[in-house]
Design a protein around this nucleic acid. Structure first.
Lengths: 135, 135
DNA sequence: AGTGTAAATGCAACATTGTTGCAAATTATA
DNA sequence: TATAATTTGCAACAATGTTGCATTTACACT
């Protein structure tokens, strides 16, 4: 899975900022916030450029947003890109890492009459292994 | 359940801004964003005052934050205040209303070794009854 | 009820974060 | 390599939240 292949597949121009963002996410084994992604980029891009590239990748569903707290969204490659199925996430309140939880079955919701669902977010918040041991 | 009783119980001064915020939430039958709450206040308070009162209520766990999307948090009275149990939420992507879903069983998570959980957020996103009919 | 003290308020100034318009640079296609 | 379309970086702006400080308010104690 390479950034240029992904961009081509979505008919997006291969710019270094876009490739950089995708590469950072591929190389991380955790979901990252936009700030974290920006910090890990090797080149420095203007705020505007970064936001715009980021937005483009989100709009084309290359990035998938997981909201763990207000003001703190983390991103992973979209399920449509990785072919993974819907899964829950674990969020460490201390170090703010986000991990995928493939073990939890996401329940089929019973909704109020007339409501339709197209997405479910299941987020477990607590302390990760590492932070739990610190006390 | 009255705002002044709630404030007294938490040893907080009963200021009109705090009472106003609590009253707005009590009288609403949906979770509200901070902006929505502010709009429904009868008196007009300085931005600063509102933010500070709001923060105080959150810190004392009188308000409970439900994050449905980055930049859009809605609030309801905390479970410790209402004595309701943990429940899922439904978020309408169109009108952005947030409803409680008492019908869904929240699954017991199996976590990676050493991780501990203290909170679970289950958010179902889709279209509410009202917005689904509009098309 | 009147008074003292701690806390809350409102204002001004500031910080942060994201957005828009536009000229210059870069990408992809012929 | 030339061309067209898109992307970039800059400057200016908008929105939102924060801090310090003087004034006002809440409430506990006479």
């Amino acid at each position: 899975m390479e950034s240029n292949v992904i961009l081509n597949k979505h008919k997006l121009k291969r710019t270094s900022c876009r490739e950089g963002i995708i590469d950072v996410i591929i190389n991380a084994n955790e979901a990252l916030s936009d700030t974290e992604i920006r910090e890990r980029l090797t080149e420095n891009y203007d705020r505007t450029t970064f936001y715009r590239s980021f937005k483009t990748l989100e709009e084309h569903k290359i990035l998938h947003k997981i909201v763990v707290d207000n003001q703190l969204a983390k991103y992973e490659l979209d399920n449509s890109v990785t072919r993974k199925k819907e899964h829950a996430h674990f969020f460490c309140n201390t170090c703010e890492i986000v991990l995928c939880l493939d073990t939890i079955e996401i329940p089929q919701p019973t909704l109020p009459k007339g409501c339709t669902a197209n997405e479910i977010e299941l987020i477990v918040k607590g302390k990760c292994n590492h932070c739990a041991q610190k006390n």
